[in-house]
């Protein structure tokens, strides 16, 4: 059972983790403050494995990697959104934090719905409504990074394989 938390369009990095909450020595603490001002109920009641469903341009604004770090340590399993802002998208991929693009999910999933996500296949199931969705496949190059578990692991794999010219 994974609960869906619903967020609107243009959720920006200042909302995901306001500048006043970082830098701090222990980045794991940021999970507690993730989205705390925008959606206090989420901040208080979120459970490990819950899912965020957002609209278009999720993660717009600054390049702070503290935003995906805060989401990661909030315990959220993944984010499903209509679209993502560029730097945030790349930061998530680099960290190996799962993000899925699905346009219908935003329109059809209601906060509190019980959602199952298969990160490998991109299948999304809404157990509350019974509907099923498929996330857009990731671009090939991005998929390689995700499969490796993030950018640093990807570079390690590249270095270990014969093809070392990319490092």
């Amino acid at each position: 059972m994974a609960k869906a938390w619903k967020f609107q369009n243009n959720i920006n990095t200042d909302q995901i983790i306001p500048g006043r909450y970082y830098p701090r020595e222990n980045v794991e603490e940021l999970g507690e403050f993730c989205l705390c001002e925008l959606h206090p109920k989420f901040a208080k009641e979120k459970q490990k494995g819950d899912i965020i469903v957002g609209g278009s341009n999720f993660g717009c604004g600054s390049s702070r990697e503290y935003a995906p770090i805060a989401l990661k340590y909030s315990g959220v399993k993944c984010i499903i959104a209509k679209s993502f802002a560029r730097i945030f998208y790349r930061n998530c991929i680099n960290l190996g934090f799962p993000i899925l693009v699905c346009k219908e999910c935003y329109d059809e999933i209601t906060e509190g719905d019980d959602i199952d996500v298969n990160l490998e296949s991109g299948e999304i199931k809404n157990n509350t409504s019974g509907k099923k969705y498929n996330a857009q496949p990731l671009p090939e190059f991005v998929l390689k990074i995700v499969d490796a578990g993030g950018m640093i692991n990807y570079l390690k794999e590249q270095a270990n394989s014969e093809n070392t010219n990319e490092v």
Binding site: S62, S63, R90, N91, M151
Partner: peptide, 27 residues
């Protein structure tokens, strides 16, 4: 590249500047 989203400012001088996160900057 810069660890700040407004790195795109450098285009004012005909340079391609873009913001990235700290993992990219560290790499």
């Amino acid at each position: 590249i810069g660890s700040d989203s407004h790195t795109c400012s450098y285009g004012a001088l005909g340079a391609f500047g873009t913001g990235m996160g700290s993992t990219d900057v560290g790499i």
